[in-house]
Amino acid sequence: MTDQAYNFAYLDEQTKRMIRRALLKALAIPGYQVPFASREMPMPYGWGTGGVQVTAACLTPDDRLKVIDQGADDTTNAVSIRRFFQRTAAVETTERTADATVIQTRHRIPEQPLAEGQVLVYQVPIPEPLRFLEPRENETRKMHELEEYGLMHVKLYEDIARHGEIATAYAYPVRVEGRYVMDPSPIPKFDNPKLAGNPAIQLFGAGREARIYALPPYSDVVSLDFEDHPFTASKADHACDLCGAGSSYLDEVITDDRGSRMFVCSDTDFCASRQAQGHRGRLSPQGATP
């Protein structure tokens, strides 16, 4: 049931055209942040208003939408955004990554590799990768213009001097097509390799900061590093305690106040699919796979 008081996918057509124009320019200049006239949405800034606007501009009635937050379909904000589109666009929804045509995400890239025909929409809080080094927009804009990314390298190098490695665990900056340095949104750096060479279209929406950017399929995306300190995509050194997966990103769950903990896949669809296929982890109710 759509809410007839609002246009298809909530936004009015003029707003959608404005966002669509920005999206096309974003694809034409990979990694460059296109300013757009972000609207005030009926959900708070910082809660996915950028992603919601991008999704609204891309959705067709034929789409199957998946919404995840922290990799999970059932986190409250994912539920809330999914409901918003069920109500305003009457699109089909799914929790299965492979079945989705549009996936809106916060902080994760699904474990299941994406395919052509899929669109991954990221919610972005701070789109400017240089923002924490230089708070002023006028300055960071100039730095992008002149490809002055030395400050970023200095910061990363200071990390190495202090901690012995680059101490950035999420929102790890990348260089796109050898030109723009881009913030991949606060995904764990474990997910960074999936940004590159991805067959799907990746779109990034920052509502409060009014910026849209994009990665065309198969884009060249390199995580910043140094020859003697190469980038590594790390994760907790465990297997999933429910499905036994050894190569998925894990959430840590504290199970009592005496130091017990377990690790489970953050991607709930991935974990559930594996369990349905009979995979078992250390703490599966049915016991581990022999």
């Binding site: 246009n7 891309c58 994009a214």
Partner: peptide, 19 residues
Amino acid sequence: APSTQSAHAFRALLEAMAR
């Protein structure tokens, strides 16, 4: 039907500009 027809048209344009 502007809202749905333009949505389909845009997806084609988006895919075209992306590929």
